[in-house]
Design a protein around this nucleic acid. Sequence first.
DNA 1: CGGGAGATTGAACGGACTCAAAGTCGGTGG
DNA 2: CCACCGACTTTGAGTCCGTTCAATCTCCCG
Lengths: 234, 234
Amino acid sequence: MFSQAALASDLATPPLLPSFKIGNAVNFTGGSLFASYSGLLGTAFSYAKDEEIYGDDEPAEYVYEVMSGAVRTCKLLDDGRRQIGAFHLPGDVFGLESGPNHRLTADAVIDTTVRIVRRRSLEAAAQNNIQVANALWALTARDLRHAEDHMLLLGRKTASERVATFLLEMDRRLTVAGMIELPMCRRDIGDYLGLTLETISRVLSQFQSEGMLGLSGARHIMLRNRQRLRGMNI
Amino acid sequence: MFSQAALASDLATPPLLPSFKIGNAVNFTGGSLFASYSGLLGTAFSYAKDEEIYGDDEPAEYVYEVMSGAVRTCKLLDDGRRQIGAFHLPGDVFGLESGPNHRLTADAVIDTTVRIVRRRSLEAAAQNNIQVANALWALTARDLRHAEDHMLLLGRKTASERVATFLLEMDRRLTVAGMIELPMCRRDIGDYLGLTLETISRVLSQFQSEGMLGLSGARHIMLRNRQRLRGMNI
DNA sequence: CGGGAGATTGAACGGACTCAAAGTCGGTGG
DNA sequence: CCACCGACTTTGAGTCCGTTCAATCTCCCG
């Protein structure tokens, strides 16, 4: 990561992001997925809001675990259309590939700190320890399950159903004190759900007017009727 | 598979499929993915058109390789909406899970023969041979890559782009003598692409009128302008 | 041949999009 | 501490792509 990020900002002058401090590397020794699976410790690393962590088709040299913040992994069409495949929140591992290259772009939704481990180190550990190998497989299988659920959403659910599913997912994954604090904007939600930002806004307003949720600011949501949301979630 | 299928048809009387001969088990010794990875031989097994191979949430006891025919794996909503996640064609492995249960329903698109291997056997082989473990991981990773591409299609592509992508995928996977011979009907294609069967038919007719392909019968397609299709594929 | 499932085509509808304007909020600097 | 700025959000109006509903057609298979 160090070498790649440095290379990118020093030589290649990334077109989208003018110049960012490439954080802040610190050895980190807390208990993580990585550590518990493989005995490996990661190095902490920080990215500013909207900074790219890795690009589509780049060699997959590192595996990442979100410590704080949020990451989106997405595919882009050259006319600007974007599909976000997943949001990665604190505790989530992302960027793990079985093949040589990344298949999606990853970037920080807000200021984010990750812990990185060399993919080679993980694979070396897997050679000697079948449990590590199983853990890597399980991580990929988990992503696949999410993708399968998301294909159903994108292919067959209505706008209201998509937003209901999204709210319940976020409720499960990042509720603190009964409140969802969204790290992402309406456009991100739209690109995740295959809708426009205006549609997201309209559906949330409708849900609020029907008493299904409370909005305080655009990013703070309190669910008031999970049962009805689950009914729309199908 | 034997016990489950027998159980299903003898005791539980599956509601959708009145009564099918549960084929025709034969030891098969040809070279397969299974054999080359693990030294295991599979048992051949046949399913009639539209017969269910396994159901959503069932224990994942077997792994399957298509020998002939075609299989669809899909998710269903209780009001009948369906999203097909993938078509599995001769040579493809499907039904491999890392967790305990299947996450999709699998059924035969047309009369189909598969080779099955106990999942326990594969996992036992993986315990002793890291290459088998890697092969299992690679199979799941391959499915994930397909799902990621398909999310982009379902979330962000137009009807014409979806059909173009589908045609190029089928061209790559099942063209014989320059001709695509589709095993699936228009409804299956629609449920794969997140569209209606009418839209599929309209787009194919439009492509034909523009000279991009030739149709002989609904199931035989000859691509006449792959370059333009690739342009729509993005 | 004839029956019937599957495919095509047409017409009208509607849900989500596009374009546009106004409103809100959080962050920054005076 | 408050005012302001700009990014983000909300809301409205009109449009359009894909759906729905319906009728006809094709072709595969007996």
